[in-house]
Every structure is written in C-alpha cells, then in structure tokens.
Amino acid sequence: MKEPPLSYHIFPLGDSALTVDFGNRMDEAINRQVIARFHQLRHQQLPGLVEVVPAFSSLAVYYDPVFIRKWVKEGQTAFDYVSTLLLELLRTETGIQEEQSRLVRIPVCYDPSLAPDLEEMAQAKELSAEQLTTLHTGRIYRVYMLGFLPGFAYMGEVDEQLMTPRKQQPHPVRPGSVGIAGRQTGIYPFASPGGWNIIGRTPVQLFNRNRALPTLLQAGDRVQFYAIDKYEFAHY
C-alpha cells in the first residue's frame, strides 16, 4: 500500500540525537510510516548512526557527533550533517512494500483478584465485568511503540467506553498486569510503580532476557487479547 508523504520537522535532541516529528498524535497511518522509516534506517546502517528509536509519531536518530565531525565541512555541525542526510532520505521511498505485521494473541485473566481496578472501572462506566472484558478482547490493537519499561508496548485504541484517564498517583503494579490509560492499553513486563488502570493479568512473559529478541512484542505488531479463567492462568 502506498501512502502519501507526511510533513515533518526535525529538531535536535541534545548534541547526540535528533527527532523527526511527523505530527505529535496517535494516528495509525503516521505510525505506519514511522515504523517503515525505522526499518529503512536500520537496514541502511549509515556510518556514525548509533541507533534509531520510533515512537507514536516520531523517530529519534542517535548519532556519534565526534565520529561524524571527521567529515563535515567547515562551519557545519554533526547535527546539520545528519539532518541533511535524513531530509534526503525522507524524500525517497522506504522501499518497504507492506508492513510485516504479526498478529500476537495474548491470554488475559480478568478475574478481580488479579485486576485491582476492574470493578471500580466497570462501576464508573455502568458496565458489567463481562461487558468490560468483552470490549477489551473485542478489538485488534496496534503496538504503536515500546518504552517506559523494557518490553512495555503502548497499544491502541481501546473502545470509547473503556477510555479512562491515568491515575493521579502511581501505584505498585505486578508484572503481567494489563492496563488502560486514556485510549491506550498496555502490559507491564516487570513490577513497577504505574498509573494505568489494571483490568487483568497475563501469564505470558513479555520480556525474556535470554532470547536474542528479548521482547514478545515489537512496534507495528497487532495484538488480540483473549480471556482465560483463574485456573488457566495458574496452569498456563
């Protein structure tokens, strides 16, 4: 699928990175292009480039300014050099025909004993726990980006009825907890303080340091949750 080119602007992120910003919003079409550019840049392995990090609607490019300064012109900075390079690159096609999108199915136990915020949320929304579960499992979500914790995937968008603002104060969250914040849903790979509303827990390991690719999910993946009961959770 060919998509129209997006407008963007480039700004420095200190002296060792820059950000290409495609619009500061959660939008699937924008994110698809961000991920495509991310793969393109990783594939090209440009000298002096340290790494590329995609987010919802932006791409950060980290570079080694001292290495790059070896060949920049007098009066030019490493930032000038890298941003010029990116401007040229962004004019080309990504060369990536179609997004390779995996569908990952993730079991979630929505039992209130594992979901500290489920009942309160259901009450506030005038939904039964079952209706809430059905709404959460009823959609295929897109993984927009990973961040916050190793392997933490920001996914969206949830059904309008499920939208819930982040909590004012962070609470301790158990690993595997599935939460909702605003229009997003996500899973905590590790125990952490967190402000998302926890509606379930998955027995699946989101992060395994012994794997070459340590995260279960990657940006661009599609995710569908399915409900399991407490017994299945315990014996998963």
Binding site: L13, T19, N24, F56, S57, A60, M145, G147, Y154
Partner: peptide
C-alpha cells in the same frame, strides 16, 4: 505532548 524518545 505524545510520548517520544528522550536522551541522557
């Protein structure tokens, strides 16, 4: 602002 990458 929507989340984006940060730096040391």
């Amino acid at each position: 602002l929507i989340s984006s990458a940060v730096n040391f």
